[in-house]
Amino acid sequence: MNSGNGVPNAGNGASGDVRRLQINILRYNPQDPDSRPQLQTFEVEEAPSMTLFVALNDIREHQDPSLQFDFVCRAGICGSCAMLINGRPGLACRTLTSALGARITLAPLPFFELIGDLSVNTGKWMRAMSERLEAWIHTEGTVDLQRLEARMEPELAEQIYELERCIECGCCLAACGTARMREDFVGAVGLNRVARLRLDPRDQRTDADYYDLIGDDDGVFGCMSLLGCQDVCPKDLDLQTQIAYMRRKMLRAALFPGR
């Protein structure tokens, strides 16, 4: 067994060869009547293992205390920090600057309401989507908590977890062609959510029920299969397959009601 080579080496090559990063940030504070959208450039000295989380905090601490952005877990788990990184939606916290050129352009995620600078209101949109799709387990009756839980096939539990891994970061909508045209489109995040609930025997709704929720152009028939969602999903969810599958099932529910 080798002793591993785990020491972070994602850095700047040889020492003494430290890059100066030029980070261009799209700034705008809607709360400030005098604010106008503009690109502002900050210079940051790159450090070993520097992520955009580190770089942005460095800018805020040393250059501009008014800079707005969102991080929570800073570990790629919570979905707070999605933004456009050189034009592509991604999680800033787990993006190493070493993976990017010396000129980096950051912009807020499109589609969502802007709070300020790189901060957008994904939470508000996700809540509204969940309400619209009634995205919770619908079960009749109550469960006796003292009794053994209902059994589930181990493989099924794993399949459900696969779809449950979505972190509602919003990247899929930022990369979505349909969402650009239809502001009420539920997006891959919403369709994946319904696919996850449909797979779960604890959710007792039928395809006819799901059809009522997503059987239109704001739902599964709005998708143009451009699949930007799949390209940018930080959790590598198989969104393409889920959307295609749901489209087939919803078509069936529409054509053969009651079956």
Binding site: E149, E153, A157, E158, E164, L197, D200, R202
Partner: peptide, 8 residues
Amino acid sequence: AWGVPWSR
């Protein structure tokens, strides 16, 4: 019952 896909 609320949907957590606990490993089985």
